[in-house]
Design a protein around this nucleic acid. Structure first.
Lengths: 363, 363
DNA sequence: AGTTCAACTGCAAGCGATTTCGGATTGTGC
DNA sequence: GCACAATCCGAAATCGCTTGCAGTTGAACT
């Protein structure tokens, strides 16, 4: 066996002399050849699982460095059963809330040595479905997703097979998937209660399309708070564009039952409403009090500083991703997934009518 | 040839009967077997490159649907030379500016049928380097990166080999990489000139660490504008934390040569400065005029609305990614890369002293 | 009718890693 | 010294797919 490699006639094409390692990336067998060992030994040194004699290991290490060998992760993922990558699907990346979620996901994944394949769904169930399929074809070890429209989702266990999936921010219909949410309803309810405590009787809710789970849940919280206070809860309006919002607000504010306070469904709605309010020349909180769902970077520097419900965006991403890694580690697919609901904070600034100079946070 | 597949005796272990396709994912040869063709034909139907007779193609399609066959993208990437994925490295995802860049990258990639592997570097050259290596090990077809600190970068052609790389927002030292930037210096210069036109003689520049390319470039623009106007340009301060900024501003504003206008280096600095200003009880623009580099969602609703330099974040991501795909398509590695500089806009709101009710955009 | 050519299809050989299995080389106890 | 176990290591088989070539067919040509 010792001199066999000197006999070229025995070479099947498999062992043919490849390019002199000039431009081709070095492979494991290049390393093995240089170190005078078998590929298996190189593999063992790399994975570190099985013991290899110190001497051999050293030779292999030297060869690796000399050749600047880098394992081909693609081959490894293909052969083994782990791709060491997870997928992440979110509606948009330009939305700071989603971006924060995504940040947490990538951070946790990196800590675990995983890559994340990211894609945006633009809230479109069809895109979302296609992208999920792509990720599955790439054999991601798991997926974290913010599902788009609840009703039309095609995200089901049968699509994912044994691949673990965690949905967050919004639930999915399939009960076997894990879900991580925040207290949308409770948060909205509490902040409306606060508005009511300020003496407001006519509070309006202005939000994006209620076909989005979170938006609807917040509306429910609004309605609940109003009803429990014995107030009318029918001042709930959809504002999907800046123009709509402006027109709508103008109409409502000049009506006889004009709202004295407004709650918005999220930052985008906040922007629309703020724009409309400033356009109408109204002042906050003297003309209308204001509260928004979802905090944002500059909420402290608007005029006046905004009272908001603060969601733990990064925390949610972290929890969802950790949960996913648990599932991946366990390797089991449960009948019913976990459902984790994270608490929100109420940040009292001045738009609600509070007078404190600095924000007060209620958790 | 027609009955050959009926003779199990010919089976070498390679063709052994695998699991009855129960829990195993169907492979191409499952499809081939069912359709009564060779795996190559299936492959050809899938890739669509070479012509296959309509009849055969139909049979294969049927088999694919019947088996719910999904090609293994990992195997495909491994075998072929294309992984159909690109890498994206950015400092943070929670920063809206970077998130916008990332959004554009993922969007363009999706349009091309590519996956994007994303990771955050936290501005750390070491992390950035390690992550780039990981992506290379995964054999991405190309990379788009926002490089961290200029001086310490380890991002060089020798690391990337033949893999195309486009740097954006900040340059890299290696001249063979493509670079897409915005007019940092010119933008800062123009907005300072505007401040000067408002009559300001003492304009301060408050920014993050100048070891970041963009921050420094903007400082240079500030200095240039001041010098050309014959004014002193030494009121340039580093403000890396909220506390620092507050202390600094307090000191400077009470000095005898207190600045009458301030330009900040980016949104984070804007926040620090805004916070300090409000803490000191100063009013904008009567006590100090204000301009910021980098627009943000709510800049219109701060008190007062902020005059800023607006960068085309998404455009930059789009251009960088398109450039990358050009390189990937061409397959050549040039000696010297392109250097594209995108124009910025000046958005005049009211913090600079302008009186218009609505923002005026100068491009 | 024989030949050429094009279109279509299949076989075999890997891509670069890991897993299985077994062989070689020690070390250990008697 | 010899049997036996433990330890270390290597050959071959694969993972699912595509590339290179060769083979088959039928139609078009001379």
């Amino acid at each position: 066996m010792s001199e066999v490699n000197g006999t070229p006639l025995l070479n099947r094409s498999k062992q043919r002399d490849r390019m002199p390692a000039a431009h081709r990336k070095p492979t494991m067998s290049d390393v093995a050849r240089l170190a005078g060992v078998g590929t298996m030994t190189v593999s063992r040194v790399l994975s570190g699982a099985v013991r290899v004699s110190a001497d051999t290991a050293q030779r292999v290490q030297t060869a690796i460095e000399q050749l600047k060998y880098r394992p081909n992760e693609l081959a490894r993922a293909f052969r083994g059963q782990r791709s060491h990558s997870i997928g992440l699907i979110i509606p948009y990346l330009y939305d700071p809330f989603f971006a924060n979620c995504a940040h947490a996901v990538t951070t946790v994944a990196r800590e675990r040595g995983y890559s994340v394949i990211i894609t945006t769904s633009a809230e479109d169930p069809e895109t979302e479905f296609t992208e999920a399929e792509h990720m599955l074809e790439r054999h991601v070890d798991g997926m974290v997703v913010i599902p788009s429209r609840f009703r039309q989702t095609r995200l089901t266990r049968s699509l994912f097979g044994k691949t673990p999936v965690v949905a967050f921010d919004r639930p999915v219909q399939d009960p076997s998937l894990d879900v991580v949410l925040v207290q949308n309803t409770a948060g909205a309810r509490r902040i409306v209660e606060h508005l009511i405590e300020h003496g407001h009787k006519r509070v309006a809710y202005m939000g994006l399309s209620r076909s989005l789970f979170t938006i609807n849940a917040r509306f429910l919280g609004y309605r609940r708070a109003m009803q429990e206070a014995g107030l009318r809860s029918d001042a709930a309006f959809d504002c999907n564009t800046e123009e709509d919002t402006r027109r709508l607000l103008k109409e409502k504010m000049s009506g006889k039952d004009a709202p004295t306070a407004i709650l918005t469904s999220n930052t985008l709605a906040t922007r629309y409403v703020l724009s409309a309010i400033s356009h109408l020349g109204l002042r906050i909180p003297s003309d209308v009090a204001f509260a928004g769902f979802d905090d944002f970077d500059m909420a402290e520097f608007t005029a006046p500083p905004l009272t908001v419900v603060r969601q733990p965006a990064q925390e949610m991403g972290r929890v969802a991703t950790s949960l996913l890694f648990d599932r991946i580690a366990r390797g089991e697919t449960p009948q019913t997934g976990n459902r984790i609901v994270l608490p929100v904070e109420i940040v009292l600034r001045r738009s609600c009518g509070c007078k404190h100079r600095n924000p007060v946070i209620m958790s």
